[in-house]
Structures are given as structure tokens and as C-alpha cells.
Design a binder for these strands. Structure first.
Length: 463
RNA sequence: GCAGCUGUAGCUCAGUUGGUUAGAGCGCCUGGUUGUGGACCAGGAGGUCGGUAGUUCAAGUCUACCCAGCUGUACCA
């Protein structure tokens, strides 16, 4: 007996998945809506390469201990480190810096593509996923940030969400500066505070406070050290984080655009922080307000489906002068999960007709019929395997075919064909219990003359 | 990375105080049916019990270590 010991296991690395018809179709539908909306706002499509030099992606240089911390990296023949992109913004910054002279400014581009992250996958979080980005390079004004938010609302509405099912929250990085001065926070502590505030949606005010002070235990009982602030400092931060009444010059300008969109669900929320270091001004996030269930049927905190903000320093990293920039990313796959649960999108596919094969002596006729059906815009395949009709019908069932053409020697001799509406047949069969009755009923089946093949199929498929 | 939990058939799981040949449901395959999908009936395939070492007359069951998965959490440009 041959042992399997040394053969590779047919399994996928964790955090990766094969994308099958359903997902691919939905991706296409959603992406088309997003792209159309971007085009309406004057954005132009760009595709950058999947691999970049690691150092142009950011500060994550491979080192000996962690050759790829967060990113998938490999070393080129000349010793240079290359990495798969982890988002679409860093490659955009490189592209703009590289082609700055030739670009029309402001440069508005959108891009849709797979990105890779070498980190631990969680429920609904993969190491390879589809991201969508729209960015504007070269406009200082916060009006364009507001316009991006309006565009996101348009997109979500067009995908079928109503205004009670999502909201856009915005804030501005700069408003924290004065508070940090008041509580005399060092640069390092500033980062820790923002990181704690960022967890508000998941941990609530209490959780954030624990993180700001002595630390907190997670669900498994593991203890996380806190920032070490005293009670008074923590309270000031919590008050600030929940104070909806603040403003700043940036926010005023942003709002002057939004005044024209009073019915848009866009509101200020100072607890929006988003990432770190990277953003320099306005920041925004699209949050779904619906209950989303995981594969086990448990309700989960879904988090944001889109987010972005202003990053005025990203392009100057390449030794150029500062270029103002702002942009938004959409997590398309996450959005699809939500839209599917709300039953807002369905993957429609071309109706499929199968020509049953009841003998190779009729093959020429089967091929002619298949061509006619395809010419009429339907999908059609000829059964080339078993001549057993039961097996062929089982195949039709599993393939979710809509109709089957049954034409054996008798039919062809008499210029007839039998057409079976599989969806109707499946309905009829629910009321049949006996085997003989089932066989005789030929549910959903009718006989027509050969010339009526295509027209009858169109009737059955309602096209 | 840290912590908790879980590893028995493709999937979901049962398996008694350690005791003979490790089971069930679902799924899969074949036949009933070379001219009718479902249901039904009959039969069948499929397991290094996560791994290694140990305790024992005897280990799926007990012990140690390792590995993997899940969940939480940290980091996340």
C-alpha cells in the first residue's frame, strides 16, 4: 500500500481563500457601482503594480529578526527587498512622486485591487483582500475632504443601503493638540492615548479608561498594560472624546461644503482616530449600523467599511516638497458580506440550458441546437458524458441549470424535441411522493417542434 | 507576540471508572433506473483517534512535551 506521508497536503495557507463564482460576481457588481460614482466626480482609473520596493512602502524595512513584519517580502537578485503592497495609498504616493512633473494637478485617481497583509487573520479578516481607493493629490482645501464623504454616501446609497443603516463620522487630528498640551503628554504617550481612543467602538468608554490608566484584562484573562495616566487625565480625555460640540478651522471649512447636503448622514465624532502618524488633518470613517452575523450566526461588531483622511506628508517622503493629499479606502469584501446579509445584491448569471445526449448518432443535431441557443444569448452545454438520462439530469440539478433539451431518436425522427423547465419541475416534484408517479409525471416538461426550440426556451426562461 | 479553549471519518459530533474488531447522523460512491432530477430502498468506500515519548497486562481515554486550529488581545504603514 502506498502511504501518503511525503505528499503535500491539499490545504490553503490560513488567512487565504479561493474566490468562487458567487464572490467574484458580487465583487464585480459592487466595484462597478463604486467606479461609476468616482467617475462622476472626475476620478480617473489607475492600476499600479502589486510589488514595490519595500522601503518605498513605508517604514517597515525587513530586518533579520522579522524579514516581513506585516508585509510579504522577498529579496531580489541584487539584494534589494521587494514587498507585496499592503494598501493602495503607499504605491500611489510612489507613483505621484515618480511622475509628478507629468500629472495634471489636482490628480484624482481611483484604483481597485488585491492587497496583502502578513498578519494573523481573524474572523472575516484575510491576508489577501480586495481594496478600493479614491484619492485627490494637490488640493489643500478641506472642501475636497467633504466631497469625498459625500461621494461615499452616494456609493452606499446606490448599493441599496438606506440612511438609517450607515453613517459617516469625521474628525480632525489637529483638535487633539491642545488637549495633549493641557495634560502634558509626551509624543510617545500621545500615540498610546490615540490608540486607546481608537478602541472605543469595541471596548466602550470603560474599556478605554482602563487602557488609559492601569490596563485591562481581555476575555481570556490576559492582562494588558495601560498608559498609566491618573484618573483626572483619563477623565479629561474621555470628556474630550465624547464632546460633540468642538470645532476648528479645518472642520468649519469641511462643514461649509456639507451645509449643502443637510440630509446626508455625516456627523462629527471626536473619537474617530484612525491609524497613526499617517494622517495629518481631516479623518473619516463609514460605519454600518446594522447587525451583521458571522458564519456561526452570532452577531458581531462589524466596524467600518470605508475610511480615510488627509495625509499631507506622504509624498514628501520621497524627497519632494510636501504635496497635499487626501483619500478614502473601501473594504469591498467586507461591504459585500453586509450587503449579502441584507439581501441587497444577488449574483445573477446567464441562464443555462443543457442538451442531453441520448446517443452519439444524434451528435450533429445536438451541436446545431447548442449553437442556436448560444446565438440567442443563453449559455448552453452539450452533455458528453454518460448516456444515462438520470445521471445527466442529476448533473443539471447540481449545476443549477434552468432547462434541459431532451431529444432522442424518436423526437428527431418526428422533428420534435422535449424541453424540461427544471425550476418548474422542481416545484412540482415537492408534491410527489411515489417513485412511479415521479417517473411518469415528467414534471415541467413539454414537447414542441424542432423549429420552436429557441422561442420556447425564451418563454421558459422569461427572456 | 501574549492568553484561553479545542483537536476522533469530507462535515457535525458520541465514545462509560483505561478493557475485545472505534461508532452515529449528514455528505459521498454504486445499484434499483442506458428515456427522467427529488423522496425511498439495498449495498459500499472512507480513521496513522493531531504528533512524539511515557505510565500500564491493556491508552481514543491517564501524564509530559510538541504541533495545528479557533477565540480574545496586542501590533498594524
Amino acid at each position: 500500500m502506498i502511504k501518503n506521508n511525503n505528499k503535500p497536503k491539499a490545504i490553503l495557507p490560513r488567512g487565504f481563500k479561493d474566490s468562487e463564482k458567487q464572490l467574484l460576481t458580487l465583487r464585480k457588481i459592487v466595484t462597478e457601482v463604486i467606479e461609476e460614482e468616482c467617475q462622476k466626480f472626475g476620478f480617473v482609473k489607475l492600476e499600479t503594480s502589486s510589488i514595490e520596493y519595500t522601503d518605498s512602502l513605508g517604514k517597515f524595512l525587513p530586518d533579520i529578526d522579522r524579514p516581513s513584519g506585516g508585509v510579504f517580502s522577498l529579496q531580489d537578485e541584487d539584494g534589494q527587498w521587494l514587498s507585496l503592497r499592503y494598501d493602495l495609498t503607499a504605491p500611489l504616493a510612489r507613483y505621484v512622486a515618480q511622475n509628478y512633473q507629468n500629472l495634471v494637478k489636482p490628480f484624482k485617481r481611483y484604483q481597485s485591487g488585491i492587497v496583502w497583509r502578513n498578519e494573523k487573520p481573524g474572523p472575516g479578516r484575510f491576508r489577501e483582500f480586495l481594496q478600493f481607493d479614491a484619492d485627490v493629490i494637490g488640493i489643500q482645501s478641506n472642501l475636497i475632504d467633504a466631497e469625498l464623504c459625500v461621494m461615499v454616501v452616494n456609493i452606499l446609497r446606490r448599493l441599496g443601503l438606506n440612511d438609517s443603516q450607515f453613517k459617516i463620522k469625521y474628525s480632525n487630528r489637529k483638535i487633539w493638540t491642545s488637549l495633549f498640551e493641557k495634560i502634558k503628554a509626551s509624543k510617545e504617550v500621545e500615540s498610546k492615548i490615540l490608540r486607546a481612543v481608537d478602541k472605543k467602538d469595541r471596548l466602550g468608554d470603560e474599556g478605554v479608561k482602563e487602557l488609559l490608566c492601569e490596563g485591562r484584562k481581555d476575555k481570556s484573562g490576559d492582562f494588558m498594560e495601560g498608559v498609566g495616566l491618573d484618573n483626572e487625565q483619563a477623565s479629561m480625555i474621555l470628556d474630550f472624546m465624547n464632546n460633540q460640540k468642538q470645532t476648528s478651522d479645518d472642520i468649519d471649512e469641511f462643514n461649509s461644503y456639507l451645509e449643502n447636503f443637510a440630509d446626508y448622514p455625516i456627523s462629527f465624532d471626536p473619537s474617530i482616530v484612525r491609524g497613526l502618524d499617517y494622517y495629518t488633518g481631516m479623518i473619516f470613517e463609514a460605519e454600518l449600523l446594522i447587525d451583521v452575523k458571522n458564519t456561526k450566526g452570532e452577531t458581531i461588531v462589524f466596524g467600518s467599511v470605508a475610511g480615510g483622511g488627509r495625509y499631507d506628508k506622504l509624498i514628501s517622503r520621497f524627497g519632494k516638497e510636501d504635496v497635499p493629499a487626501t483619500g478614502i479606502s473601501v473594504g469591498v469584501d467586507r461591504l459585500i458580506v453586509a450587503l449579502e446579509q441584507l439581501d441587497l445584491i444577488k449574483a445573477k448569471s446567464r441562464p443555462l440550458v443543457i442538451v442531453a445526449n441520448l446517443g452519439d448518432n444524434n451528435l450533429s443535431e445536438y451541436i446545431r441546437m447548442a449553437s442556436e441557443i448560444r446565438d440567442a444569448g443563453m449559455a448552453c452545454e452539450i452533455s458528453f458524458g454518460s448516456k444515462n438520462l438520470a445521471k445527466q439530469l442529476k448533473y443539471c440539478d447540481r449545476k443549477q441549470a434552468d432547462a434541459v433539451v431532451i431529444a432522442g431518436d424518436d423526437e428527431i425522427k418526428n422533428n420534435k424535441i422535449s424541453l424540461k423547465d427544471l425550476k418548474e419541475g422542481s416545484e412540482i416534484s415537492k408534491n410527489i411522493t411515489g417513485r412511479e408517479e415521479w417517473k411518469e409525471t415528467k414534471a415541467g416538461q413539454k414537447e414542441v417542434i424542432r423549429e420552436d426550440l429557441v422561442s420556447t426556451l425564451k418563454e421558459i426562461l422569461k427572456i
